[in-house]
Design a protein around this nucleic acid. Structure first.
Lengths: 321, 321
DNA sequence: TTGTAAGCGTTATCAT
DNA sequence: ATGATAACGCTTACAA
C-alpha cells in the first residue's frame, strides 16, 4: 500500500515548515495569502489528506460517532442506519455501526472498542442497564435511543402515544374489539391501547393481549392463542410488521380476509407494511437521529428525556367494511 | 469526559516500564510470568484498553474495514451490513459503513476518508470506475462486491446464473411466456433468461423485456407497458423485490390474481418476498462477506474474480395453476 | 527479562 | 507570519 503523504512531505514540496501546512489545512488566518496559495496548490495537486489517527491522538477527537444497535433483525434499523450515516456525514462525522445482538457482553465489548477509538459520542439502543451505568460513570458522551429510561439521556418514540393513536384510528373505523399482539405485557404500546379503551369507557379483555416471545418465532403459539379466543376481535394491532405478516398468514389459513373480515394495523412501517398494504405507526427516524446527533455534538451533557410523536401512515387494508 | 488510562499509568501502578505493559498487552512471551500476572491484574482492575489511534498511528493498521455501499434503499443491504459487521467482528475488525448514495463525488470523499483513517481494507459496491482506478493506483487493499468488473478484484453473485435458474424454475412449472422487468437491457439477469430460452429453442419476445428506470419509480410507465403487451406473459421475473411489489399492485388493478393467473419470481429475497410469498433468487450474502473479508485479510492483493451461485428460494405463489 | 529511546503524523506553544 | 519543539500513546529496535 502506497504510503500516504504527510504534512512533512507537503511542507518540503512547498518550501515551508510542517506546522505551516497544518495552519493552511486548518484555515488558520495568520498564514500569508501567497504562502497559503502555494501550499494549497500542492495539496490539491498531490491529493493530500491529513492522517486521522494522528489528529485523533493529538486532539482527542476522532470525528466518529459510535452507534450500538440492539439487533439488526428489524428492517426499520436500515432506515436508522441510513439516517444516522447521512446526518453525521453532513456534520463532518463518520459513523461506526455495531450490533450487540441483544448480548450484554458483546455490548460492553463494543463500548470499550468505541472508547478505545476516542469516539466523540455514542448512540445506543441498549441491552443492559449496567452498561449504561458504565457509560455514565465514565462520563461518556452518549444518548439512549428507542427506549425511555429515567436516569439516562434518552430520545425515543412515544409508544404510549403510538398505542393510543393506533387504537383511536381503528375506533374511528368502528372497531371496538381490538387485540394487541406483542412481546411484553408492560409494553407501552399495549398501555396506550388500554388507555384509549379507558378513556372511551370500553373494556379491553385480557385475552385481547396476545403475547409473542419475539419477532417471528412462535407461529404455533400464535396459532393456538388465536384458536382459544372466546371473543374474536375485529381488528389487530401488532407490535411490529413481521408479527403482522405472520398474523395475516394465520388468519388466511382460517379463511379470514384482510381487510374484509379483519383489520390489521402494525408498528414500524417498514416496507413490509407497504407490501401488505396495511396501516402502520411510523417512527420519526430522521428526526430521532437529527436530535440524537445534535445532542451529542451540542448537548452539553445535560440529561434529557426527549419524546417524539409517532406518525400514523394510513393504508387501505385497515378500512373496515 | 474522563481521560482514558494509558500504558504509562498502568506501568506506574505496576512498577514496571511502559513498554513492558505493551508486551503484556500484546502477549509477548519474553515477559516474566510473575510480572505479567501483576500487570494483568492491574489492567483488569482498572479496565485499561489501549488507545487505537496511537496503535494505528504507530503500526499503520487501524483494524477497520471500510464498506462503501451504493445506496441503502434496497433492504437486502441490511443483511449485508449485518453479515459484514459480524464476520469482521469475529476477526477482530471494526466496520465503517458509508453510503455513496449513487454519487461518484460522495464515493470519492468516502474513499479519502477511509484512507485518512488507515483502514486495512475497503469493500465497495461501486458507483464509478474512475474511483476504482484511483483505489488501484493507490494500491489500496480493496474488493468490489455486487458487480463483476474485469480489471478489479471482484466478488459477486452470478446474475447470469440467477437469470437462468429463475427461468428454469418457471419453465419446470410449465411457463413458456416469461417476461423480465428490470433496469437495463444489458442486465445479466436478463441475459440469463435469454440464454435459457435459447437452450430450449424458445423465442424470447422483445416486448417481454420491460424496462424500468429504478427501484420504485415509473409506476405509470410500468402500467403503460403492461397495457401495450401484445403477447401477455404467464410469468414475470423482476429484477428486485420492490418491482415485484409494484407489479403485483398493477396486476391486481387489472383483476389478475397471483399465483392463480400469473406467476411472479423476484430477485433479492428480502423480507418482501416472504411477505408477498413469492419465489425469489437469494444472494449468498454471508458467503460473499466471508469471502470478501478473507480476501482483504489474507488475499495478498491478487486480482480475483469470484462468482458465487445464487440460491432459489421456492414459495407457493410461483406455482402455476 | 526489562528499560531506554526513537518515531508514527498531527496540534499547540513557544520563540523569532 | 512562520519555524522549532514538545506532546498525544503506542510499537519496536537496541541496550543493559
Amino acid at each position: 500500500m502506497k504510503k500516504n503523504l504527510t504534512m512533512k512531505d507537503i511542507a518540503k514540496l512547498a518550501g515551508v515548515s510542517q506546522p505551516t501546512v497544518s495552519r493552511v489545512v486548518n484555515g488558520n488566518p495568520t498564514v500569508d495569502s501567497e504562502v497559503r496559495a502555494r501550499v494549497e496548490k500542492i495539496i490539491s495537486e498531490y491529493g493530500f489528506k491529513p492522517n486521522s489517527s494522528a489528529k485523533t491522538l493529538r486532539s482527542n477527537s476522532s470525528k466518529i460517532i459510535g452507534v450500538i444497535l440492539f439487533d439488526l433483525s428489524n428492517y426499520y434499523y436500515l432506515e436508522m442506519i441510513r439516517s444516522v450515516e447521512k446526518v453525521a456525514g453532513e456534520n463532518g462525522y463518520t459513523v461506526i455501526i455495531l450490533n450487540s445482538q441483544g448480548d450484554k457482553l458483546l455490548e460492553k465489548e463494543h463500548i470499550l472498542n468505541l472508547q478505545a477509538r476516542n469516539v466523540d459520542g455514542i448512540i445506543i439502543a441498549p441491552v443492559d442497564r449496567s452498561n449504561l451505568d458504565f457509560l455514565k460513570k465514565q462520563n461518556e458522551n452518549f444518548i439512549v435511543i428507542d427506549s425511555s429510561l429515567p436516569h439516562y439521556p434518552c430520545i425515543y418514540t412515544s409508544l404510549l402515544q403510538g398505542g393510543k393513536i393506533a387504537t383511536e384510528h381503528l375506533y374511528s373505523l368502528n372497531h371496538q374489539k381490538i387485540a394487541f399482539i406483542g412481546a411484553d405485557k408492560r409494553n407501552l404500546k399495549l398501555l396506550g391501547v388500554k388507555e384509549f379503551f379507558s378513556e372511551k369507557n370500553m373494556v379491553f379483555l385480557d385475552e385481547w393481549f396476545i403475547e409473542t416471545d419475539s419477532t417471528n418465532s412462535n407461529l404455533d403459539k400464535l396459532s393456538l392463542k388465536l384458536d382459544s379466543l372466546e371473543n374474536f376481535p375485529t381488528a389487530f394491532i401488532t407490535s411490529n410488521d413481521v408479527i403482522a405478516l405472520n398474523l395475516i398468514k394465520e388468519l388466511g389459513k382460517r379463511g379470514l380476509n384482510i381487510p374484509k373480515d379483519i383489520s390489521i394495523l402494525s408498528f414500524d412501517d417498514t416496507i413490509i407494511s407497504t407490501a401488505l398494504n396495511i396501516t402502520s405507526i411510523r417512527h420519526p427516524v430522521d428526526m430521532m437521529m437529527e436530535n440524537a446527533i445534535d445532542y451529542l455534538l451540542n448537548g452539553k451533557r445535560v440529561s434529557i428525556q426527549k419524546s417524539l410523536n409517532p406518525i400514523l401512515i394510513k393504508r387501505d387494508s385497515t378500512t373496515f367494511l
